[in-house]
Simulated scan of single mutants.
Amino acid sequence: MLRLDRVLEYSTVSAEQRPQLQFGDAVSEDPQSTAQTLALVAQAEAVSTDTKVRRLNPDWDDARVQAEVERIHAETGAAVPDPIQASALG
């Protein structure tokens, strides 16, 4: 764009000057966007509870994630074993 401005005589800035860009250490995703994404993949049954918890809490260790997954499963009734799989094992 600087060269084009120079050629069209809109600017006297040298085309050799290049902009300096600096990015921050991290860019965090908008919480609403994360929630919508997780809701859509959960509705499609395309994501595990473990993955959802890790996505929402990337700084948690494995033990804390597992504890949260177990709490969610207990609250939603997902902790009940599948009767078809249980009969196949026994």
Rank of each mutant, 00 (worst) to 15 (best):
A35R: 12
E29A: 13
H73G: 05
T37F: 08
S48W: 02
P58L: 06
L2A: 13
M1W: 09
P81M: 10
L89W: 12
D30K: 04
T37K: 07
V80Y: 07
D50C: 03
L21F: 09
P81N: 04
E70L: 06
P81C: 02
A88R: 15
V65P: 02
E9C: 03
S33C: 09
D61Q: 05
L8G: 06
S14I: 04
Y10F: 11
Q43Y: 11
V7I: 13
R6W: 10
S28A: 13
E45M: 04
K52W: 03
D50L: 04
D61N: 14
A79F: 04
E45V: 10
A88N: 11
Q22H: 10
R3P: 04
T51L: 07
A86G: 00
W60E: 01
D59Y: 05
T49A: 12
T51I: 04
V7D: 12
A88L: 15
L4R: 07
D61K: 05
A79L: 10
R54H: 05
G24H: 10
L56F: 06
Q36F: 14
R71C: 01
D25K: 06
V65W: 02
V47H: 01
A46D: 14
E75K: 09
I72S: 04
V65H: 02
D25A: 15
T76Q: 07
T37D: 05
W60A: 11
A67C: 00
T76I: 03
H73V: 00
M1S: 13
Q36H: 14
I84M: 14
S48H: 04
A79G: 10
I72R: 05
I84H: 14
W60I: 01
Q43T: 09
V41I: 14
L89K: 13
D5C: 15
A35Y: 11
T34C: 09
Q36T: 15
V69P: 02
Q32P: 00
D5S: 14
T49I: 13
P58R: 08
Q85C: 11
R64P: 01
R71I: 02
R71G: 01
W60T: 01
A35Q: 06
I72K: 00
L56M: 15
A63H: 11
R55W: 05
V65N: 03
V69Q: 03
A44W: 02
R64D: 07
Q32F: 09
